[in-house]
Design a binder for these strands. Structure first.
Ligand SMILES: [Mn+2]
Ligand SMILES: [Mn+2]
Ligand SMILES: [Mn+2]
Ligand SMILES: [Mn+2]
Lengths: 232, 232
DNA sequence: GCCTTTTTTTAGTCATGGCTAAAAATTTTA
DNA sequence: TAAAATTTTTAGCCATGACTAAAAAAAGGC
């Protein structure tokens, strides 16, 4: 009977398991492999809990994992993770576009909403939102087939040279603190700037908006802002 | 530290606890008190599990409960329950109005969505949906203050007399099976009919639409359809 | 008013997903 | 390469919310 149930449900994952898969996915993309410690930090649990969960995910066929080495996702696991990322980002779009939330306030809610429902719900939401390509933080939204369109030519703003013209297209740090700081600097996705000068002393920079307004950007901020260089 | 946490969180309830509160609320409205057995049926658990949970809810101050007697809600518990009902019904409106779900397919999803977020989210959703007064099944949506506007003058269709003119305004049974049956009969909320005749043999009735179409309605169906009588 | 049936509670168990503290393995440093 | 530091695993514990089976209480029938 239990086995029957599993069969019928196509092996459904708990919210906690889903969070782990998403965390492995992120770390794998960033570092190639997900270490126990990094996972513990991402899912906000102890290393002991991570070991425990990794065993379960491995047994269930979603992750591969060698003791002391770290974890990677199987094809099935990657599939789940990409779907989760899709759900998370679509809900973020919904919260910002439709419910008028600020971009720094949606992450926690999306973290809950992403665990609800299946393909039907998320595809309807996707259609309702007109198949958005990016979430409110500029991160690309995987499509229904699980294909992730990677952002073209994005570099960190800290790598721009004097005279460069660019458009802000994303952030490296999606924390509320950083996003609110960008709000204070009046920096938002889609805005165009010219890099007027780089100050050698603290590597801070002066950006000039097309309307002429000046913004002072610390190197710490610039490293976490993603931009696309414009032709001219 | 644990106590501190509780204090900061204003005592937050688990999804399971919330489902129990909602179930007690419903039974209390229907029967005056929620018996162990009825609760077990509603939350789909065993009576033993119910006893267990009732003790917790009582200790936490959300329910009152005397062994062998049944449970009722405290003011705090009723508050939570009404908020849950509000959340459930608003999400149902969203799913039907915005995501084009059929009215028979939204209950299970709303059952999950209702546990997410707090007042902020639900009030924004409410505003986005233009403060709807009723959910897709004709059930009234409590407002942000927890006031439930009760449906005026609604009676079961089985209580209508020959010659009565009425509008369908709700259902007693929100099961997928029943709602799909109404779809097949072409009966929907807001539609107006005249009761042409009641057949003595099986207490079934013939309804006539304003456009002249006839619908044969069994007594079993009529008992589960709510209507408002129209003047003329 | 007793006896049977139904309802509820108790007792004991289990799975999940956390935790801590200690042991073991790995990596870094000297 | 041996000692120190770090990382990971193990062992044991806990809370939650289920379950079953048995005992106890309440309600009905005659
Ligand atoms: Mn999540
Ligand atoms: Mn995002
Ligand atoms: Mn629910
Ligand atoms: Mn409803």
């Amino acid at each position: 009977m239990a086995k029957n149930f599993i069969y019928l449900c196509e092996m459904l994952l708990s919210p906690s398991q889903e969070n782990y898969l998403k965390a492995i996915y992120k770390l794998e993309a960033r570092e190639g492999i997900a270490t126990n410690q990094a996972l513990a930090a991402l899912v906000e649990a102890t290393p002991a809990s991570v070991t425990n969960m990794l065993r379960k995910l491995t047994d269930a066929g979603f992750a591969e994992y060698e003791a002391y080495q770290g974890a990677t996702l199987t094809a099935a696991g990657r599939n789940e993770a990409v779907t989760l990322v899709r759900k998370h980002r679509l809900w973020e779009v919904f919260l910002v576009e439709k419910l008028q939330y600020d971009w720094d306030a949606v992450h926690a809610l999306a973290e809950e909403l992403e665990h609800i429902g299946g393909d039907e719900l998320i595809n309807r939401l996707d259609a309702f939102l007109d198949h958005p390509a990016y979430d409110p933080h500029g991160d690309p939204i995987p499509n229904a087939k699980g294909v992730v369109r990677t952002r073209q030519h994005a570099i960190a703003a800290s790598d721009a040279k004097e005279g460069d013209v660019f458009v802000v297209c994303g952030v490296r740090d999606s924390s509320s603190l950083f996003l609110q700081h960008l709000d204070k600097l009046n920096i938002a996705l889609g805005k165009a700037y010219t890099l007027k000068e780089c100050l050698e002393f603290d590597r801070s920079a002066v950006w000039v908006e097309q309307e002429g307004a000046l913004t002072n950007v610390s190197n710490e901020v610039a490293k976490n802002v993603l931009i696309q260089l414009t032709d001219e």
